[in-house]
Design a protein around this nucleic acid. Structure first.
Length: 502
RNA sequence: GGGCCCGUAGCUCAGCCCGGUAGAGCAGGCGGCUCUUAACCGCAAGGUCAGGGGUUCGAAUCCCCUCGGGCCCGCCA
């Protein structure tokens, strides 16, 4: 039932001549009693400290009274006989090292230049100096090899261009591209800003199980595995919704979770089989409150993004979309207006199926009413969305976990946020009536062949204890990062996107 | 799942249409140069042309299949 997985690759690729050359250097190093992979390098400062210390020096001058130790990756060596320039790079940026026979001594100078290669991790001690051309530098007094690179880094100017290699070996992509390092650093800092926003509003960050007996809370194919403890099949979660709402029944009032969810479907530019989802549930509030809260978050993230990447016009354009005021579209009104179809809510499932077919949808005949409505919206309205837009008040059939609209019959209180080309967030006033919840689950199941949402009897039972009026939201962090940075592929927002065995 | 495109040295790329001994730059090796910024100059070396099959006197090049990747479409709240 569960075939043994293929073993990960354990054999190394054959050694290249370049690698043989570098191994020879390691061997020489060891033969001299020196350690090419030492244990520590205390007292290091980052390169920005040295660059700052160069301020005020005259071109060609150095300051022997001050001394610094730096460490990082060696990128390029420019040799000029008895002087050489080496570019060292750490997370703070690049720093030029000046190596001189006069400082290092003839034999040390020669042997260092013979043994160093681009890609090596190198430590250096020396004094701040400005080159004659005015480049902030470290005039080196001594060097320490911190890790010999056996495999050479990609070409110094073009870096790693092959998209496949960049994804398979993200570490090479990172080490050869400052822009890639910066992008993932920004993702991390944006995630921190999101946490700050929720924390400041009194939300509690919680964790709920990834392994569930039946994955629920959304419509998606689950990944299936096995638990020895339960002696049963388990599924990886496809949403966080139902466990989080149980926590509000338990009185936690405001909770959020940031974690991976798993949907066993194809990878494309806006879908990944495992992605980072944030879901938040807020008791004693409705979807209007949630919209205001989300707008505040967007405004904060837009500002933070531009602050982190001030010189990128593409980022400025993308992040600029997340400043209020935001557009609003009523689901039913906009669909009726764009399609010319009257009385959408009055249509039967069969009529909607025919309309969806006419609009080019190929979903199965047995799909639910909600699916056909989604397809119609996707066809008639979505392509025209050219800014961050709140689509509001969906037909009840599209959304089994949302509360019916207090004023619009046939609708639920729900909004989805769309950016051009993708859906960004989904929120609603939560359905809290246990009997209605049970009825909605059953009517979904009642539609022929539709198993979009697993019936979760335990969840209905939880609602019977009483869930306060509540609003909830879910959004994918990866897509939000894409939208804020103007990335066109979700793989550019994920450090290690899935790749097939080669 | 369907269509189109791509895979040549460690890296970045020519060569493919129109079949005739596999090229360059970077990196690495050897030599030169005490202020360069992708340093520069000289010399030598480096290849399973993704893999397999076919056509041909001869295939990186033309044809078929497979693998991997990209884009678009379909599927996927």
């Amino acid at each position: 039932m569960y075939p043994r997985p293929p073993r990960p690759r354990t054999s190394m690729p054959e050694e290249t001549p370049l690698e043989r050359e570098r191994r020879g250097k390691v061997a020489r190093w060891r033969a001299d009693g020196r350690e090419p992979y030492p244990w520590e390098f205390p007292g290091r400062v980052d390169t920005a400290v040295v660059r700052a210390a160069c301020a005020g020096l005259a071109p060609g001058a150095d300051d022997p009274a001050r001394s610094f130790r730096v460490g990082g990756r060696l990128r390029i060596v420019r040799q000029h006989g008895r002087t050489a320039f080496a570019d060292l790079e750490d997370l703070a940026g690049p720093l030029q090292l000046i190596l001189r026979v006069d400082e290092l001594g003839e034999s040390a100078y020669r042997s260092w230049l013979a043994d160093l290669d681009p890609g090596d991790i190198l430590g250096a001690d020396g004094s701040p100096a400005l080159s004659r051309r005015g480049e902030p530098s470290l005039l080196v007094r001594s060097l320490t090899l911190l890790a010999k690179a056996i495999t050479p880094p990609p070409e110094k100017f073009h870096g790693l261009q092959d998209v496949e290699e960049r994804l398979r070996r993200r570490y090479v992509d990172l080490l050869s591209s400052e822009a890639v390092r910066r992008r993932f650093r920004v993702r991390s800092l944006l995630l921190r800003a999101i946490r700050e926003h929720f924390d400041a509003a009194g939300f509690l960050e919680v964790e709920t199980p990834v392994l569930e007996r039946v994955a629920s809370g959304a419509a998606a194919q689950p990944f299936v595995t096995r638990s020895n403890y339960l002696d049963a099949e388990v599924q990886l979660r496809i949403a966080e919704e139902l466990p989080l709402k149980r926590l509000l029944v338990g009185g936690l009032e405001r909770v959020y979770e940031i974690g991976k969810v798993f949907r066993n479907e194809d990878l494309d530019s806006i879908h990944a089989p495992e992605f980072t989802e944030l879901e938040a549930y807020w008791a004693y509030a409705d979807y209007h409150d949630m919209r205001r809260f989300l707008e505040g978050l967007y405004e904060r993230l837009a500002a933070r993004t531009v602050e982190l990447l001030p010189d990128d016009p593409e980022v400025a354009r993308a992040a600029g979309r997340f400043r209020p005021p935001f557009a609003t579209l009523d689901f039913v009104e906009s669909l009726e207006a764009r399609s010319g179809i009257p009385d959408i809510l009055g249509k039967s499932r069969e009529e909607l199926r025919a309309l969806a077919r006419a609009a080019g949808s190929t979903v199965p005949d047995g799909s639910s009413t909600g699916t056909f409505l989604d397809k119609l919206f996707e066809h008639y309205v979505e392509p025209s969305i050219d800014r961050v837009t709140f689509v509001v008040d969906f037909p009840t059939a599209t959304t089994p976990l949302a509360k019916r609209h207090r004023a619009k019959p046939g609708r639920v209180e729900r909004f989805e946020v769309f950016a051009p080309g993708m859906e960004l967030a989904n929120a609603y006033t939560e359905l809290t009536d246990p009997d209605e919840q049970e009825e909605r689950f059953r009517s979904q199941l009642g539609e022929r062949g539709d198993d979009r949402y697993a019936y979760d009897a335990d969840f209905v039972e939880a609602l019977r204890y009483g869930l306060p009026p509540t609003t909830g939201i879910g959004f994918g962090i990866d897509r939000l990062v894409m939208a804020l940075l103007g990335l066109s592929s979700i793989k550019d927002a994920i450090l290690f996107p899935p790749v097939r065995e080669r």
